[in-house]
Amino acid sequence: MHSAATDDYLKTIYHHTEWQTAPITPSQLAAELGLAPSTVTEMVQKLAAQDLVSHRPYGPISLTDAGRLRAAAIIRRHRLIETWLVREFGYAWDEVHDEAEVLEHTISDRLLDGIDGRLGHPRFDPHGDAIPDAAGEVVRVPFVLLGGALVGHTGRVLRVSDRDPALLRALQATGLDVGHAVMVTGRAAVRIDGGESVELPAGAAEAVWLTA
């Protein structure tokens, strides 16, 4: 069963450990999906029966090899579509997530391969998230969350969470974007490309990742 619901569960579990290591718990998964814990428990049991997740009662949930491959495939679709919408259609980075959520379930593998080729096989989406290749592999570099970086730390902006479109717009207004060089001057303040120190909007400390 590879339904949209299955994909959403697998994507959420995959996302949880992309930028930190603690596995997701059933209650966290329910909160992320906006579903009742009982509904999530039932679905996790079905996914476990299909060997897509590993889970024991009341314990954390992790993807099996098969589950990780399936999750990487749908995430590859989502992030390639986001990149395509930004590069080819002029979408802003805060506008692409919802469109990609719809299109990822509808386009063919042939069209996806065509998009990938036209874009030059990008490794990262507009938010800095790694795009898995056709084998489910991704490129990763050491990273640090802005809120955990020491004052004086220098690095590139690796990734900005796409969870909050309003925060994306506010960050863009400060001049911060993926790929820019920054020096940390406070818990949520940075110098961007050698400029003056800029105070970032609320939520930035937990939404911006830098090279370590």
Rank of each mutant, 00 (worst) to 15 (best):
F143H: 09
L146A: 03
F124G: 04
V144Q: 09
P122V: 07
L150W: 01
G128T: 05
A135V: 00
H127R: 12
P132R: 09
A149C: 05
L145N: 03
G155T: 04
L146M: 07
R159I: 00
V139S: 06
H105D: 10
D129T: 05
L111K: 14
P142N: 01
V160S: 01
A135E: 08
D113I: 10
D109E: 15
D113S: 15
G128A: 03
G120T: 10
H127N: 09
L150R: 15
F124V: 07
E137V: 04
D133H: 08
A135T: 03
G148Q: 13
L112S: 13
F143W: 12
G120S: 02
G147Q: 05
I115C: 10
D133P: 05
G147I: 08
I131K: 12
L111W: 10
D116I: 07
H121N: 11
V139R: 12
P132N: 07
R110P: 00
L146F: 00
D129K: 06
G117H: 13
R110E: 13
P142Q: 02
R118I: 01
H121V: 03
G117T: 11
L146K: 07
V160M: 15
H105N: 13
L112R: 14
V139W: 06
L150M: 10
A134E: 12
I131M: 11
V157L: 05
L146W: 05
D113R: 15
I107Q: 12
P132G: 04
E137N: 11
A134I: 11
I107L: 15
R123D: 08
D109T: 13
G155F: 02
V157H: 01
V151F: 03
F143R: 14
D116C: 14
L112V: 14
P132H: 07
G155N: 04
G147N: 06
A149Y: 07
L158K: 11
R159D: 00
T106M: 13
V157S: 01
P126D: 03
R159E: 00
A135H: 06
H105V: 06
P132E: 02
L150F: 06
L119P: 00
L150N: 09
G128Y: 05
I115T: 08
H121R: 14
